[in-house]
Amino acid sequence: MIKKTLAALMAFFALSCWAAVDVNTATAADLDSIKGIGPGTSGKMLEERKASPFKNWADLVDRVPGIGDKRASKLSSEGLTVNGEAYKPGSTAGNVEKKPAKASK
């Protein structure tokens, strides 16, 4: 009986370690705990979040320099979420702003 109780407790704690970190509610330490996010990236995320919370992954990719589709996918697999949602490949497609062409002289 004790072994079963101990096993259940260990399973509970193991699952709690894999808890998702939501970019809109996380602290700098929470973000830094995600493999692939360091102090520089977490600082950029928190700075952008001050302006307004991230609506979705496309919004995060657009607003945080250094995060593209490939990196978003990796961060999501490490436990990062946006509004509780994991990254879905292709969810940011077509969301890139087109910059005006430079006028030639």
Results as ranks from 00 to 15, higher is better:
V61N: 05
A72I: 10
L80G: 04
Y87V: 00
G68S: 10
F54G: 03
F54C: 05
P89E: 09
D62L: 14
T92H: 06
A58Y: 05
K74L: 10
R63Y: 09
T92D: 14
G79P: 07
A72R: 09
E78Q: 15
S91G: 04
G79A: 08
D59R: 02
E85Q: 15
G68E: 11
E85I: 00
N56A: 12
K88W: 00
G79R: 05
K70T: 14
A58H: 10
P65L: 05
D59Y: 03
G94D: 09
I67Y: 07
S76N: 03
S77A: 14
A58P: 07
V82E: 02
K55D: 13
D69A: 15
T92S: 14
A86D: 01
D69G: 15
G90L: 01
A86F: 00
R71G: 03
L60V: 12
A72P: 13
S76A: 09
R71F: 12
V82Q: 01
P53T: 10
K70Q: 13
P89V: 05
V96M: 05
P89K: 15
T81R: 13
D69F: 01
V61S: 07
K70E: 13
P89S: 11
F54T: 04
T81M: 10
A58K: 09
P65R: 11
D69P: 06
L75P: 04
G79S: 10
L60D: 05
G84T: 11
D69M: 09
A93W: 00
V61R: 05
D59S: 06
A72W: 07
N83Y: 03
V64L: 10
A72G: 12
G90S: 01
L60I: 08
A93H: 01
V61L: 14
A86E: 02
G68L: 12
L80R: 07
D62A: 15
G68W: 04
Y87G: 01
A93V: 07
P89A: 13
S76H: 01
K55L: 12
G79Y: 03
L60T: 05
S73G: 12
I67V: 14
G66Q: 08
D62Y: 03
D59F: 04
D59M: 07
L75G: 06
S91P: 00
G79D: 05
L60R: 06
V96Y: 02
S76T: 01
A93Q: 12
F54P: 02
G79H: 03
A72D: 10
K88M: 08
P65F: 04
G79M: 08
L75F: 10
V61Q: 11
G66I: 04
L75T: 03
R63T: 09
G84P: 09
G94I: 06
G94K: 07
D69V: 11
T81E: 08
L60E: 04
W57V: 00
K88T: 15
S91F: 01
G66S: 14
I67F: 08
R71W: 04
R71I: 12
G68K: 12
L75K: 05
E78L: 03
S73D: 13
R63C: 09
Y87F: 15
F54E: 03
L75V: 08
L80P: 04
N95A: 14
G79E: 06
N83R: 14
V96T: 14
A86C: 02
V96K: 13
L75M: 10
E78M: 13
Y87T: 01
K88S: 09
D59P: 06
S77I: 02
I67Q: 11
G79W: 04
S77P: 01
A72N: 12
R63M: 08
A58C: 07
E78P: 02
G84E: 07
T81I: 08
